[in-house]
Design a protein around this nucleic acid. Structure first.
Lengths: 313, 313
DNA sequence: CATATTTATACTCGAAATGAGTATTAATAG
DNA sequence: CTATTAATACTCATTTCGAGTATAAATATG
């Protein structure tokens, strides 16, 4: 195979939420890194990239993708193929897809919590201790090792902006920026792997993934966290009817942050995102909650409806 | 050449602003449709897609791209190659690049106002009369011609959301949605061209472009209009020092809307986006204005600084 | 059965952001 | 000298936002 040949790979971060955990569908083999479902784009049989994606995802995973969205096209040499100039150059187009959880039908395919790959992104309980315990010390070392004072200053700024060291607030949308910084600092296993190094002295944060799939997943999380705020995409992940707390817990799971309950309700109500069904949830512990459903009409009424986040604490 | 072969094309919407007009760099030949600068991605010599873009843009247009951003990867059959199954399938990765205006060095390359391609997007003087005069009547016809009542309802909703017929406000970010609707309704020349039809009875709105380049440009405008609000990208288009009115006119040119002067100043000042230089503009008509420059430190201080729009009227 | 606990839901209140001005200053054009 | 144009400071009402309190309706527990 000539190294001059390009092939296009389609990768999908297929996301659902179950029991307050955001899940991503991965292909897992024993001893190998997890991978996102991915396949080649066949230019002969497929008219569009997205139809190609839907076709093989349907075949391979038996999932019916509701909402899909193109994320980004990655073409860096050395971050897809294990070794450069080995066969065709793969350019991969990443997609985000949302679906309701269900049993994976295909072999070796399973749901995994996405915070397994990004443990520093889940702030629901508290600021993850690994940030102060591992990440920031390692990044400070990375700043010190910079070749010049200017490079060190740039690294320090990125560190501050990404992980909020020094008064800056945590921005839950900077998932990709944070992953890329950890990659460049050699703190995720993919970095050493892509560089061909075996030594892995530094801490390895989160589970690694095949090729650049963790980068695609980071892009997917970032996009979803942002999009949620101005488009009602969360409802793709909800059952037809749900309580307001279930909706809130889903948004919290995705954004990785806790929200103020009363203000959350005020927002979804005022925006007309939901309507009561008159039915009530099966009583579990507290007072039974009314079941709501998504008001599809909102798409016709408001230009940018979404679940804006009013954070707690 | 086998139709099974894929090649990757890189296209760039290179944008600048001069005299209150947003400009895009196009390759123009007599008698042919304008094109965005585009070229193949060479997987052998280029490590990343973006480095490939910078290289041939530098060679072809002699422009030094400051800010660049990947937009979207388009792979629809029939919207790039004039006829399907003719040679290699081209998948094109679109980019947005911002630069200061200057003389195009390459032959056949020139700046054009982007509203030439999207006349309905410039609301600075007034709501463009062509919307009520041409677009909405033609779209109402398109709604009537739908195959089923459900399809008609969907078309009507898109029409309302895109062009704000019936109380809905104009959303200046929906540039791509509007272009795609006009394309599907057969109101832009590319639609008839891609379908292989010669008849062009319906009105042809805006100047057409080669291949799917007008779609890429629509994506670029939409992205820039959105991004401006939370990232200080406008300053890539400004001279090192500028008056606040010049800055406002630039934002207005890009967003296609007029802004409230006093509130605009309040926003950029409060956000710390600019700092006074102590120097003053050469007096033209009114009172001389202070010259300001971009405060780069803001990138380190605030998580999402941008020029939020507080519209006038 | 009384009471603690859990959850739902309504309502309040101050701070900040936003939209739409008025008022005043400083220049040029006639 | 005065009209015009633009710059800049300041005001004010409304809306939005963050952070509560208050109360209701269920279960769990002693």
């Amino acid at each position: 195979m000539s190294p001059n040949v390009i092939s296009i790979g389609l990768s999908a971060a297929i996301v659902s939420v179950e029991q307050e955990q955001p899940l991503v569908l991965v292909v897992a083999h024993d001893g190998a890194e997890d991978a996102l479902p991915f396949g080649p784009f066949n230019p002969v049989t497929q008219r569009t990239l997205e139809s190609g994606l839907r076709k093989w995802v349907g075949e391979q995973t038996r999932f019916d993708l509701g909402y899909t969205e193109q994320l980004y096209t990655f073409g860096d040499r050395g971050r897809h193929s294990p070794s450069p100039d080995d066969g065709a150059r793969v350019v991969s187009v990443g997609y985000l897809a949302l679906t309701r959880p269900g049993k994976p039908q295909a072999p070796d395919t399973r749901w995994r919590g996405w915070y397994q790959y990004f443990p520093w992104e889940d702030w629901r309980q508290a600021r993850p201790p690994m940030i102060d315990g591992i990440i920031l010390p390692a990044l400070k070392k990375f700043v010190k090792e910079a070749a010049s004072p200017i490079a060190a200053e740039q690294r320090r700024n990125r560190m501050r902006l990404c992980f909020g060291d020094g008064g800056l607030p945590w921005d839950e949308e900077k998932v990709l920026e944070r992953y890329e910084l950890l990659y460049e600092a050699g703190l995720v296993r993919e970095a050493a792997r892509d560089a061909g190094k075996q030594a892995k002295t530094p801490p390895e944060l989160g589970s690694p993934m095949l090729y650049d799939h963790r980068r695609i997943l980071a892009t997917a999380i970032a996009r979803l966290r942002g999009k949620m705020k101005y488009r009602p995409v969360v409802f793709e992940l909800m059952a037809p009817s749900f309580t307001l707390l279930e909706l809130q817990r889903t948004v919290e799971a995705l954004s990785g942050a806790r929200l103020h309950k009363q203000n959350f309700r005020r927002l979804v109500a005022e925006q007309g995102l939901v309507e009561g069904t008159g039915k009530f949830s099966a009583p579990t512990r507290g007072r039974p909650a009314e079941l709501f459903s998504f008001r599809r009409e909102v798409l016709r009424e408001r230009p940018a409806p979404g679940v804006r986040l009013s954070s707690r604490r």
